[in-house]
Every structure is written in C-alpha cells, then in structure tokens.
C-alpha cells in the first residue's frame, strides 16, 4: 500500500496548533491550518491515506467522505511542493 511521510529536509514549528514550514530546497515558506498540521504531525511516520482519514475522523467532527476528499487534495499539494514523499508501494507516486 502506498504510504507517505514528511520530507525530513523540511524545518517546521507548531505555534498555537498551526504550523510554519520552511523548505530549504526552493526557499519557500508554508503555513498549515489546524487540520493540515494534525496530518503533518501524523506523517512523521509513514501513513497510508486510509490511516490518515481514520485519524482525522477520530480527531475532528468530519464526514469520512469529505475527509478523504480534503486529505487527497492536501496530499497532492504537499507532494507538489516537496513537503512529503512517498514510501513503500513500489515508490511510485500514484497521483
């Protein structure tokens, strides 16, 4: 199963449940809202989309289908910006 984890080149700090991320590769700064920060913290260890959806639904009052859609969009954005990377599942980005 395809799993994802944080790119360990990224520096970040969490301030009041929201995160600021620095990507030294492209010198870009990113801000994450509370839910995205929760996901970011999960991704310290490899996680599948199913793992993330389950964890988000346990933590926040959200419909599973809506959560899956939002997390998939977040996954695509984080991959595009180099914030996360794929692990396992043959190492192929399934975008």
């Amino acid at each position: 199963m395809q799993t994802y984890r944080c790119n360990d080149e990224i520096a970040y700090r969490v301030i009041d449940e929201e995160a600021v991320l620095l990507n030294p590769v492209d010198n870009r700064i990113h801000l994450l809202n509370e839910v995205a920060t929760f996901v970011w913290k999960l991704l310290a260890e490899p996680q599948s989309i199913d793992d993330i959806v389950s964890a988000v639904c346990r933590e926040f009052d959200v419909d599973p289908e809506r959560a899956r859609s939002d997390i998939d969009e977040l996954r695509v954005q984080m991959l595009e910006k180099g914030l996360i990377e794929t692990v396992g599942g043959g190492g192929v980005d399934a975008r």
Binding site: E9, A11, Y12, R13, V20, L22, P24, N27
Partner: peptide
C-alpha cells in the same frame, strides 16, 4: 539568508 541555514531550524527557532 534563512534558506542558507542547514535545515532552516535555527532561524525558525
């Protein structure tokens, strides 16, 4: 120069 710092952690701190 924050992008110059290794992993940017220090300037973020």
């Amino acid at each position: 120069g924050w992008g110059l710092e290794d992993r940017c952690g220090r300037v973020l701190d």
